[in-house]
Simulated assay, not measured.
Amino acid sequence: MYEQLIPAVVDTFSLPGEPEHDFLLRLRAADICLRRNYATSAAVSSEPYAEPILRAAYLLRYLGHYTLQLGDLLKELEGSAAAHVLALPELRLAALCGGPCPEAIALAALHSQAGGRRLQVDALDRHAEAWSDCWPITSAIIRHYPGHPEVRIEGVGTDLLKPSLTPQEHRRLQMAQVFTSMNCLNELVGVDADSLQRGLAMRLDALSPGTLVLASDLAGYSDCAQGLQMLLDLLTARQATVLLAELDPSRPHEMENRFEIPERIAWIYSGEYENRFRIFVRQLRLAAVLN
């Protein structure tokens, strides 16, 4: 992945004529800012991702790891009631707070192995317009490996704390066969738990029967456990078939870090700044099918 990712990030986000070393210096400073944001258990504002250099830092630090995170969850579902959904020739994913859409990489890998021909991804994100410069990078990675025949990523603006869905988001949710909520509940619970519950309920009600719902978040934050339990309660109230519920922070899923840090960017993540490449990999996970 990183053979494709690094040059794509440099080409997309460096300034005209900017030497790569200078760009990576700027990216290192942005990456340190990201880590400081996530070092606290408080809510993390999504506003900084409007800055291109922070999106670039996010891609290098998190895209690979979050791809593995969903990949682990999908692997767990092999042979389950979700298998027929993932083997559909044409598959549509609605990725809540999808950002650069690492979910698309993991899903495309499994979908192509199952003979899938087309994957449509709708990134439902408050900053969908800003994240749109990342989607060609994600799509290029998918074309290289796993070599999915056709993947299209589009964005839809959303706000989980608003009292209603836009007609466009409602349509995209109705058409989805897979709905993901990855690595966002911590931020949203901390802002307004009651509004988040209403927002999640509206989106679940917009989904069609048979939709596969997948969620995962960090085990180290209490808000993540609260958010995933909230989602599980909403699914249970709708009589969804729960396939997997690992929501106990004391017994998390241990996700293996399967990436070696590439030499080209290794110096960015130096001990001098306590800026390690490896991310926190203990996860809470949830999977269900709507009835």
Rank of each mutant, 00 (worst) to 15 (best):
V9K: 01
D11T: 02
F13T: 01
F13V: 00
G17M: 03
G17F: 06
L27G: 00
L34M: 09
N37V: 12
Y38W: 13
Y38P: 01
P48G: 10
L54I: 13
R55F: 01
R55H: 06
L60D: 01
Q69E: 07
S80F: 06
A82T: 07
A83N: 01
L86T: 07
G98D: 03
G99L: 07
A106W: 02
L110W: 04
H111F: 08
H111M: 10
H111T: 05
A114D: 02
A114H: 04
G116S: 03
A128G: 11
A128T: 04
A130G: 05
I137A: 08
S139F: 04
R143T: 09
H148K: 07
R152C: 10
E154N: 15
V156T: 15
G157W: 12
K162C: 08
T166R: 13
P167A: 05
M175K: 12
A176R: 05
M182K: 14
E187F: 04
L188F: 02
G190R: 01
S195I: 05
L196Y: 02
R198G: 04
G199V: 01
G199L: 03
L200H: 06
L200P: 06
M202H: 13
M202W: 12
M202L: 14
A206R: 12
S208R: 15
L212K: 14
A215G: 05
A219Y: 12
Y221E: 03
L231A: 05
L232S: 06
L232W: 03
A240H: 03
L244T: 06
D248M: 12
H253W: 09
M255L: 05
M255Q: 12
N257E: 11
I261M: 09
A266W: 05
A266S: 13
A266P: 13
A266I: 03
I268D: 10
I268M: 15
Y269Q: 05
Y269W: 09
E272W: 11
E274I: 02
N275T: 04
V281K: 09
N291W: 00
